[in-house]
Structures are given as structure tokens and as C-alpha cells.
């Protein structure tokens, strides 16, 4: 177990290292001289030179990467070009909103996909299966922000319980928190539910076809017990894997959904940096969201080991 954990951790570190190189490389993409850009168009030559040495822009790229990465590891991601606030501080303000949205959306997605995937798997090729697969095809083709707008149109403008925009932290009371999060979570959750439903359907249909499920039926267990105890748990492995893989999609989708509903998370932060070309903040968003994705995948790996005791023989014995 310990060896397995170490291996996965090492893999995660490699990924994060490559991501850090890519993220740092973003600053090299900017056309023109960043010093001029930062110092302003009307700056004198001396002012520009001062900015250049101040930011270390006169150093070789490798040196600049190392000092940037060394700072990043200690939690220093630089300061915003827009208001000089430390990037880490900005991110920590916004992260809870995005994480709340992502977790709520994941919950919505699981609530949708568990029953639908199960129903579809019971009779593969049956009418219900075909209806559900048409539904998922439709959902995957729907732009999530448009779905959000349609929900606002249908619900928020008619039912006052669902505010169209804004965010309340959990400390303001669970009711307000949930009401403000409901529509965005549904919007984002529908998209995530598609792949979950498809995976669960495929995995569960396979499991229901196995000899051990037939054995369970031959023992006289009732259909619901067979499904709950003998099938779902074994079908959970690919399902949980999808949950991990979806974290990235979910965080990406959160950007647009936050913009639609005016949630002050990483997404709206990213949106605002677009016009300001605030690269340090964007780099911070890239790093932070990737760390979340990598952490989620590590968690999935652990869950996988827990779900498949058969894999443990080598270590345990």
C-alpha cells in the first residue's frame, strides 16, 4: 500500500512539474516586451529598464523559471498586474466559491446518473435504455451556459426561491447558500452526469452479465439485493474513475457557469483577467485548478484500491 501511494504521489509530482513549466511558458507567449507592457506606454527608457531588472526579466529563461517555481512552491504566485494584490490572496478568496459549486454539481450529477445509469443497464437495448441514451446525447450537445440561461428563464424569473445571480457563503445560513447554488449546480451537473450515466450503464450491464450475479440470483436473493449488494459495488470502479476524470471538465465548465450566474469564483476571476491581460492571476488559476484535479485523481486511485480488494494480494501477502 505504501509503495503504491508513493508511486502515485511521484506521478502527481511529475505532472505538476510539467504543468508548472507549461504555465510559466504562458508568459513567453505574450507578444511584445512585457516590461513595456507593465511600465506603461509612456514610460521612459530608464523606467522600463528598472521594471525589467525589478522583475528579473533580464535573466535567462531557465533562471526566471526556477525563481518563479521556487516562489510558487512556497505559496507565492506573484502579484496581480491589475491591483498589485498577492495572487495567492485573491485565489484563496475565490476558491471556496468554485469548490462549493464543483462539489454541489458533482452531487447533482451523481443524483442524476445513479438512477438513470442503473435503469438503462437493467435492459440494455430496451426502450428505457434508448430514451436515456437519447437524453444523454442531447445533454452532451447542449452548451452548459445556455442551459443555465434557459433555467434562469424558466425558473429564476418566475420562482423567487431561485435567485438568478449571486453567491452567499455557508456562514450566511444553509438556506441562502443552497438557493444561490441550486441553479448553477444543476447547470454544471447535467453536463457531468452524461459521462457518468454512460459509464455506469456500460459497467453495470457488464456486471449484471457476470457469473457471480447469476450465482447471487441462483441463491434466491431478491432482485434489489442482487443489484445493491452484488452489482453496484463492482460497477462502482469505472464510475468512480469517471468522477475523478470529470474534475477537470467540471472546473473548466465552472468558469462559464460562474459567469452566467455571477458567482464570484475562479471562473469570473478568469473572465475578468481576460480583458486586463493579468497573466500572474491566470497562471495562479491554472496551477490551483490543476492541483485540485491531481488531488481528485489521487483520491480516486485510493478509492479504487478500496473497491477492488483483489488487487491487494501482492502487497498484503
Amino acid at each position: 500500500m505504501a509503495i503504491f501511494l508513493l508511486k502515485r504521489l511521484a506521478g502527481a509530482v511529475v505532472v505538476l512539474f510539467v504543468v508548472s513549466v507549461i504555465t510559466f511558458g504562458l508568459s513567453l507567449l505574450i507578444p511584445g516586451d512585457p516590461a513595456i507592457h507593465i511600465a506603461g506606454e509612456h514610460a521612459t527608457r530608464e523606467e522600463i529598464a528598472a521594471v525589467r531588472t525589478g522583475l528579473g526579466l533580464d535573466q535567462p529563461v531557465a533562471v526566471r523559471y526556477l525563481s518563479w517555481a521556487a516562489a510558487a512552491v512556497t505559496g507565492d504566485l506573484g502579484t496581480s498586474l491589475y491591483n498589485s494584490q498577492p495572487v495567492t490572496e485573491i485565489l484563496l478568496e475565490r476558491l471556496p466559491v468554485t469548490l462549493s459549486l464543483a462539489v454541489a454539481a458533482m452531487a447533482v450529477a451523481v443524483l442524476i446518473s445513479l438512477p438513470l445509469g442503473t435503469l438503462a443497464a437493467l435492459r440494455p437495448g430496451g426502450r428505457l435504455d434508448r430514451v436515456i441514451s437519447s437524453g444523454t446525447a442531447l445533454a452532451v450537445a447542449t452548451p452548459s451556459f445556455w442551459l443555465g440561461l434557459m433555467l434562469i428563464l424558466a425558473l429564476a424569473l418566475t420562482v423567487p426561491a431561485f435567485p438568478a445571480t449571486g453567491f452567499r457563503p455557508l456562514t450566511d445560513g444553509a438556506g441562502a447558500f443552497a438557493a444561490h447554488l441550486a441553479l448553477p449546480a444543476v447547470t454544471l451537473g447535467v453536463a457531468a452526469a452524461v459521462e457518468q450515466t454512460r459509464q455506469l450503464r456500460a459497467a453495470l450491464a457488464d456486471v449484471l452479465d457476470t457469473d457471480y450475479v447469476r450465482t447471487a440470483r441462483a441463491k434466491g436473493l431478491l432482485p434489489l439485493t442482487v443489484l445493491r449488494k452484488h452489482a453496484v459495488r463492482n460497477a462502482a470502479v469505472p464510475f468512480v474513475t469517471v468522477l475523478g476524470l470529470e474534475t477537470g471538465q467540471l472546473l473548466g465548465g465552472a468558469v462559464v457557469v460562474e459567469a452566467v450566474f455571477g458567482l464570484p469564483g475562479l471562473g469570473t476571476l478568469a473572465e475578468s483577467t481576460v480583458t486586463r491581460q493579468d497573466l500572474p492571476v491566470l497562471q495562479g488559476i491554472v496551477i490551483t485548478s490543476t492541483v485540485v484535479v491531481v488531488a481528485a485523481n489521487l483520491a480516486v486511485d485510493l478509492a479504487y484500491r478500496w473497491l477492488t480488494p483483489g488487487q491487494e494480494t501482492g502487497v498484503a501477502a
Partner: peptide, 12 residues
């Protein structure tokens, strides 16, 4: 059944 490898649930 025929195949005892397959007829027991691996996770129980």
C-alpha cells in the same frame, strides 16, 4: 456452476 473463479463475487 462451472467456473468457481467467476461464480463468487470478488468484492464480498
Amino acid at each position: 456452476f462451472q467456473d468457481p473463479m467467476a461464480s463468487l463475487n470478488p468484492s464480498i
